[in-house]
């Protein structure tokens, strides 16, 4: 959080960006729940549990990246988003899609 008295952005840009990250983690959680539901539809074989574990892992990576960025945005003048974080988020999204294709077929 920024300290009163520092030159705080009147447009609340860091806060808005932080909330955008929150919304995105929320969306990713919904998709992760759907993926988990898809993975655990059958009898609970070891392959299904492995699928569920992969889904959980993807979700945790997403949350971790978002958490780090949200903390970085607490600065008065946050640095630009690291391309590595952007790639990680995109990687998680694509991984969920690939996982879906693998499970559905």
């Amino acid at each position: 959080m920024s300290v009163p008295g520092t030159d705080r952005d009147a447009g609340l840009q860091p806060e808005r960006t932080r909330l955008a990250w929150r919304r995105t983690t929320l969306a990713s959680s919904v998709v992760a729940v759907l993926a988990l539901r898809q993975a655990l539809r059958g009898s609970g074989s070891s392959a299904e549990l492995a699928g569920a574990a992969v889904t959980g892992l993807i979700w945790l990576v997403f949350l971790w990246v978002a958490h780090r960025r949200i903390r970085a945005l607490a600065a008065v003048r946050p640095r630009v988003l690291a391309p590595r974080s952007a790639l990680a988020v995109v990687g998680c999204t694509v991984a969920l899609a690939v996982f879906a294709v693998a499970v559905i077929f």
């Binding site: 995105t24 969306a27 759907l34 993926a35 539901r37 995109v90 999204t93 879906a100 559905i104």
Partner: peptide, 13 residues
């Protein structure tokens, strides 16, 4: 990214 997640979620749904 949220749009992409919504589409992926739609695929699951």
């Amino acid at each position: 990214i949220r749009t992409a997640l919504a589409l992926v979620g739609g695929g699951f749904a």
